[in-house]
């Protein structure tokens, strides 16, 4: 009991009062100061406007990052103040992306200019802010509506980067650049978990690409990896089983059943395989079925089949050996 000091039980400790006042004063002072002298940015994002996008950009390797916003939109301002001031994000955007700020002016001027409106329509932008990561060719990789914090934005950008390989691979497959396609898919699969739905398709595409290149061993390995990790019996697993000769072509079609999208997948990918084996009749039949039954003319299957069909036609026209 001797160590109990004489002090009041009901008075506020001096240290608490002092520190509360000091920090309150500091806070108000700093806030006022920063109002007039905002801290300098060590790094800035160099936003482009839609009309400044060049053809070169569209053919390049950097992904596009669209920031659809409006001047009256408060969450957009918040986003600018919180997420876009991250060093990591600024670095990522400058290195791997072309950052484009698309500002909606419908409220102020009644309508937007053509570039802005085109982009908004293309990506079906309804609310602000909408962030879109897209391939240079225009294919959307991912989007986010609403503001987000630094960590979430960083995740979005990194994921877009990883998925880009998948998209590059698809474009390369369509163009017939099979070596590049094989590389892209293998890189994608290295960085992605197998449960991701794209991984299943990446597996199929990797097998196709390696087969086109005549790399038997690589294609067998890709096939084995894919089958080992893909447990979901839904498509495209049956296609892999067919490639592995575990089921016949007719069995594959039976599994696809009347489901149009499954049939499109079957005809497209087996068609590519037939074309490679120079079984042009069957290949063409498959491709024509896909072309006439596809609703979306921009879909991967439509585009690859139409290109492949074109290649068959020109192969037929030019004499063998050239």
């Amino acid at each position: 009991m001797a160590k109990i000091e004489s002090a009041s039980a009901i008075s506020t400790p001096k240290w608490l009062l002092a520190s509360t006042l000091i920090f309150l004063f500091l806070r108000c002072g700093l806030a006022a100061y920063e109002n007039y002298n905002p801290p300098q940015a060590s790094d800035e994002i160099h936003w482009r406007s839609p009309e400044k996008i060049t053809e070169e950009d569209r053919l390049g390797r950097k992904l596009f990052f669209y920031n659809f916003s409006a001047d009256w939109c408060d969450p957009c301002k918040k986003l600018d103040k919180t997420a876009f001031v991250s060093k990591d994000i600024v670095g990522l955007l400058e290195r791997d992306f072309i950052p484009v700020r698309v500002i909606d002016r419908k409220k102020e001027s009644g309508k937007n200019d053509s570039d802005t409106q085109e982009l908004q329509d293309k990506y079906s932008v309804q609310a602000f802010p909408t962030l879109v990561a897209a391939m240079p060719g225009g294919v959307k990789i991912s989007e986010h509506i609403g503001s987000l914090n630094m960590a979430a934005l960083k995740k979005m950008l990194l994921e877009a980067n990883a998925v880009a390989d998948y998209f590059w691979g698809k474009e390369e497959l369509i163009d017939g650049r099979f070596a590049a396609a094989a590389n892209s898919f293998d890189s994608f699969l290295k960085h992605t978990r197998w449960h991701h739905w794209r991984a299943a398709f990446a597996g199929v595409f990797s097998v196709l690409a390696h087969r086109e290149l005549g790399e038997e061993a690589a294609s067998k390995k890709a096939l084995k990896d894919a089958l080992e990790h893909l447990h979901d019996p839904a498509f495209p697993r049956p296609i892999l089983l067919y490639f592995d000769s575990k089921i016949s072509y007719d069995e594959l079609l039976k599994i696809a059943g009347e489901n149009k999208s499954n049939r499109i997948l079957c005809y497209a990918y087996t068609g590519l395989d037939f074309a490679r084996e120079k079984d042009y009749e069957r290949a063409r039949k498959n491709f024509e079925w896909v072309l006439s039954n596809s609703v979306d003319k921009d879909s991967f299957e439509y585009r690859i089949c139409s290109k492949a069909l074109g290649r068959i036609e020109s192969a037929k026209q030019s004499p063998p050996g050239s």
Binding site: L16, T20, R27, E34, A41, S42, V85, S86, K87, D88
Partner: peptide
């Protein structure tokens, strides 16, 4: 992470954090 990763570093968020906490404790004591 947001505070220290910001390109416009400012100690205001940290000061505001400490100030809030002290204000709560102060008023609770009072």
């Amino acid at each position: 992470y947001e505070v220290f990763n910001s390109t416009r570093f400012s100690i205001l968020p940290l000061v505001a954090y400490a100030s809030n906490m002290l204000l709560y404790l102060f008023f609770a004591t009072v």
